[in-house]
Structures are given as structure tokens and as C-alpha cells.
Amino acid sequence: MPTKTVTGVEVDVTDDGFFTNPDQWTEAMAPELAADEGIEPLTDQHWQVLRFMRSEYAEKGTGPTVRVLGKTSGVTVKELYQLFPKGPAKIAARIAGIPKPRGCI
């Protein structure tokens, strides 16, 4: 399994960069992971989404889709795409250290 070094710590990831073990993630890793996605700096609104991703994953075992994020995270779909232009659910999952959300909608 591929690994990646974030803030000097080795973590397990998939080929496309998603954490396979979300317990290896810490909040301190987020800025570096975000920079890898071309997102700097992380704003409060980015954090609102990242924390929502983490809590949804912890609760449901899968990350939310853009539709769920838009409905329940308190950030609108339009804003989500401004924060994470390359795909909000996908990119936020990578930065939040959770597997890729699998919903179709």
C-alpha cells in the first residue's frame, strides 16, 4: 500500500491520495494536505467543511457527497465549489484524511 509523509509522519493512502486509516490524520496535517491540492491558506469556512466531513465519516462510515454537504454543512453548493474548485467532497475528503465519498448524487 502506498504511503505518504505529511508533517513528517508516514500515513497510509490509496493510489489517488485518500487516507485509508482516518485515525492517522491530525488537524495539523490539513494545511500541508490542502497545499498539495493548491488550496492555501485554509479559511474558517474550509475548516467548517473539513470538520463536517470528519464528523459525518465518524458517524456514518462514509464521507458526505456535495449534495449532503450543501444541505447540511451550512455551506452552500456555490460556496463549496469556490472553496474547493476541483470537487468539494473529493478534495475535502483528501484534506480531512477520510476515504473518498462513494455517493452518486
Binding site: 449534495r67 465549489y81 470537487g87 448524487i105
Partner: peptide, 11 residues
């Protein structure tokens, strides 16, 4: 619609 939305979700 699902394909368009899914495309955007993938960036």
C-alpha cells in the same frame, strides 16, 4: 443530470 453533477463533483 446525474452525469453532469457527478462530473462537477470530480472537478
Amino acid at each position: 443530470l446525474i452525469m453532469a453533477n457527478g462530473a462537477r463533483a470530480e472537478g
